[in-house]
Design a protein around this nucleic acid. Sequence first.
RNA 1: GCCCGAGUGGCGGAACUGGUAUACGCGCACGACUUAAAAUCGUGUCUCGUAAGGGAUGUGGGUUCGAUUCCCACCUCGGGCACCA
Length: 772
Amino acid sequence: MKNYDHKKIEKKWQGEWDKSKIYEAKTGAKGKRFYGLIEFPYPSGAGLHVGHIRSNTAMDIITRKRRMEGYNVLYPIGWDAFGLPTENYAIKTGIQPAKVTKINTDTFRKQLKSVGFGFDWSKEIDTTNPAYYKWTQWIFLQMFKKGLAYKTKTEINWCPSCKIGLANEEVVGGLCDRCGGPTGKKEKEQWMLAITKYADRLDKDLDEVNYLEKIKIQQRNWIGKSEGSEIEFNIQDSSEKIKVFTTRADTILGATYTVLAPDHELVNKLKSQITNWIEVENYIKEVKDKPEIERTAEDKIKTGVELKGVVAINPANKKEISIWIADYVLSTYGTGAIMAVPMHDERDREFALKFNLPILDEPFIDAKEITEKVGGKIVTKYKLRDWVFSRQRYWGEPIPIIHCENCGYVPVPEKDLPVILPKVKSYTPTDNGESPLASISKWVNTTCPKCKGKAKRETDTMPNWAGSSWYFLRYTDPKNNKELASKKALSYWMKEGVDWYNGGMEHTTLHLLYSRFWHKFLYDIKVVPTSEPYMKRTSHGMILAEGGVKMSKSIGNTIDPKDIVSSYGADTLRIYEMFMGPFDQAVTWSTESIIGSRRFLDKIWRIGESKISDDVKLNKDFQTLLHKTIKKISSDIETMSFNTAISSMMVFVNEMERIESISKSDFKMFLQILAPFAPHLTEELWNHTGEKSSIHKSSWPKYNPKKIIEDTIKIAVQINGKVRTEILIGVDLNEEEIKSQVLKDEVLIPWLENKEIKRFIYVKGRIVNIVV
RNA sequence: GCCCGAGUGGCGGAACUGGUAUACGCGCACGACUUAAAAUCGUGUCUCGUAAGGGAUGUGGGUUCGAUUCCCACCUCGGGCACCA
């Protein structure tokens, strides 16, 4: 008997699959189709890590099962290759980012193939390929034309020591992700995308999709829809009014002062009436210079200044109340002004106590009525902000806009797309926070497409969320140079959206939300057939290093899948990662435990090599177990309960070891249900049974419901809720028959002697409980 | 502070709509095979007790014939948001 030589087997079948292209999807094919998607990886220099394998294997299992169920399956892969790590690497080494990306994607491709994923490699995409980002730029231009992309002066994160602008993701807890120093804000012109115009639909349409509930909740919280009233407070001796937003109009009688955000426009308008202007001006400056880390600190103490000389009128009771500015009121939410009700609001109370403001316990009144009475209106507000879309960075898609002195912002004509990212000498952002592209005058200086006059190119690039906001569309038709994808391909694969998308929880409020936004826009301009991109969204848990801490290169506790594939095999790694624990929860890596998964496959190999016989007498219990196992695996895959699926296959394998011999047909059925988990081993053993075509093209076995029914079953007998014995009963017996059988049971006699039976409970097929 | 999720053996974890808690795997112990080791196979492995039996699913209550599962209060850990009016 040959040993299970994983290296030989895995290499052999990976080559065969490549050659026969068995995983290629056929666009337009008749019958059922299925689009399974995973988040495409960022090809970092560190190579593939075990976390990629966990999520990829899960969707690989699902798509392999779908294929065996007769679906035309699309399971594509590509590279989300724009991004900071590559750029930083280029800054350090001087090697072109495009070159680094090529090296890294080659490594990733090789590694992914070595794990045996059934990707359709003919549809591979790369967001940094000009043929791809042409369409990323095209979508941006459509948004620009519809007024959804606009440039505005806004505050960006700024690291004073690195002298560069930082993306939100680069600011961790108020500190610079690069140097660890404190960050501040800097005003800068930025391209923005008006995602807030879609806030309502992004919230409401979550009702239509099958996402895990926690994902919906997190998105809803992020969008932050809240309904309330906008009410105007008059200012005494002024034509100006303070418009406040409140969700508690019913508490308006208790409003004892109002607060404006320090940068509220009204503050300047009231300047001439304010008697303590110097104090006010100092406070505004102080707030502006406050580092981010202090403003958001846990135990921050409320600060603020009264605007002396001006007084507001509470419209509900006409009482005069003071006006304040304080940084606990944000200019970016609601109207940037509040009515303070210290009796019912924690923050207002804290502020009132500090500044000795009145705290009045007034009765509640009807919110809707009072809003109408004082001339306010019911409004809906969102926490969601427009998306800062500019990066002063090199390694991203150039924003296809030309600045003309006469015509303003002019879109690059579509025929001139893509705007190719030019090669530069230095990738370091400039001292004043401009993108490195700004220093290439040859590229920057151009002519206006409209008036043909002198003009300059936009030098900001897009964030790395741009390319990933629509990539799943490109997979359907990756080589199209006329459209982002053909109508035919989109109406075939995206008819109802991506069928199943699995990814990380960390992308819930970024990538997932951004791509829903883009998709809705594309739906509005009739490019895609659905308003939601993904029908179903699930998420995987992280893999932690031994000891339960995050895997990180700097700590040196990462696991290289390459080593596991080499010493145990890809199939063992796949089984192990699926067996580790519940798929949606974080699990701790344990190299010690991998051996269990390898032993499982070793046993199957040995059974396949020595126990298969054509002449096997019918074993009813074994048949029952086989069909129960098929049933369980079939449903466990659908619920992503991969760990329990594997454990029940282990039970089955243990049973195969116990019995004399197994018929070829039974063994083949088992190989088929294992095939999505361990594609190489099962292909090899399937081949040994004499099959000529791939197991992955065979049909998913159906369990026989008749074979699952047992004649006799073992049930527990309890007395007063405590298990005393087990009995074998016929499944068809009724309660009376069981009762007479149970009362005759010798073991139970001492428990029942001289006792009165108060109740006899029989739960069909499960349990008997006697209350005495 | 608010919103999610989770607390079960030495460890990872299982238990369907309330019905035999600890499946499956790792580790450990003993045994078989072997000159020996590895590999493999077998047996055992929550806890107290010689046993009969008792006690255990974060803690304390409740509902129920019966609770890991449902309800209430609390504790701990993980994740997200964070002065959002």
